[in-house]
């Protein structure tokens, strides 16, 4: 059984952590124990879960936009050498620019805070979907492309019946990576925006708790954040496996 070791190790670490906090008598505003963190969550569950929801809405909106944009641009660069030359370098430029550095600009330029957060998260999440899908669209072997040509298939039929289905496993792998990145992007943007004072996401709770020295609540928000990331990864992974298995490929 490989299910139990990580759980046991986690429980042991929590016990050690709580024990160390008790034994040393370190104040909760420096290092809160796991029990204090749970208590902080139970003190304000609606507040924290509301913030989680706010962050998740930004995350999934950004993921949806990234999917549309990533797949659309991947199809464009596969279809046309011009589009490839025009798009590829800028996509890479966007990918290597740290979002923390451009988030203040975006937040200043885009009036609507929700749109600004989604834009930042999309910049971070877009690239894996885009580049993976592009690789997948180019993955069919030359023989299959020849077969389509021999039977008079045009670009559209080749895209629909060959390139897009062939790209599905690549796209799903990209989507899984982008899911985690969208959350990271949303949180980074919230941190930057939080300083401006119009956000309500988990990152804002972390900042706020920090200012007020409510360190257990800060940790509770952090735990929610990483749980959300793990859940997104697991759900997207399972959905991908299910889809591929249904096609008889996994």
């Amino acid at each position: 059984m490989t299910r139990w070791p990580p759980i046991l190790a986690g429980v042991a670490a929590l016990l050690l952590w709580q024990g160390a906090v008790w034994a040393s008598g370190v104040p909760a505003y420096l290092v809160p124990g796991p029990l204090a963190i749970v208590r902080a969550f139970l003190d304000a569950p609606a507040l924290l879960l509301g913030s989680l929801l706010s962050t998740l809405v930004v995350t999934f909106t950004a993921l949806a936009v990234s999917t549309g944009l990533g797949v659309g641009l991947a199809v464009a660069i596969t279809a046309s050498r011009w589009a490839r030359a025009a798009i590829q370098p800028w996509a890479v430029a966007l990918q290597v620019t740290p979002v923390v550095a451009i988030a203040p600009l975006i937040i200043a330029w885009v009036g609507d805070p929700f749109t600004a957060l989604v834009a930042c998260a999309t910049i971070v999440a877009f690239f894996p979907i885009f580049s993976n899908t592009a690789i997948g669209l180019a993955s069919p072997p030359g023989e299959l492309l020849d077969l389509f040509r021999l039977n008079g298939a045009g670009r559209w039929a080749t895209l629909r019946l060959l390139r897009l289905p062939a790209a599905l496993p690549y796209f799903l792998a990209g989507l899984r990576i982008s899911g985690g990145l969208a959350l990271v992007g949303a949180v980074v943007a919230e941190f930057v925006a939080g300083a401006g004072g119009f956000a309500s996401g988990l990152a804002y709770r972390i900042l706020e708790s920090g200012y007020r020295l409510q360190i257990p609540r800060m940790f509770a928000a952090l735990v929610l954040l990483s749980a959300a990331g793990i859940a997104i990864n697991a759900v997207l992974g399972a959905a991908g496996t299910w889809l591929l298995r249904r096609r008889g490929e996994a």
Binding site: L144, L147, L150, N151, R247, G248, E249
Partner: peptide, 19 residues
């Protein structure tokens, strides 16, 4: 015309997702 030539390659080159 399209389809009047059948071609068999060295690999079967089937669509893996199709029956």
């Amino acid at each position: 015309a399209p389809g009047e030539i059948g071609f068999v390659f060295q690999d079967a080159t089937l669509l893996p997702w199709a029956t």
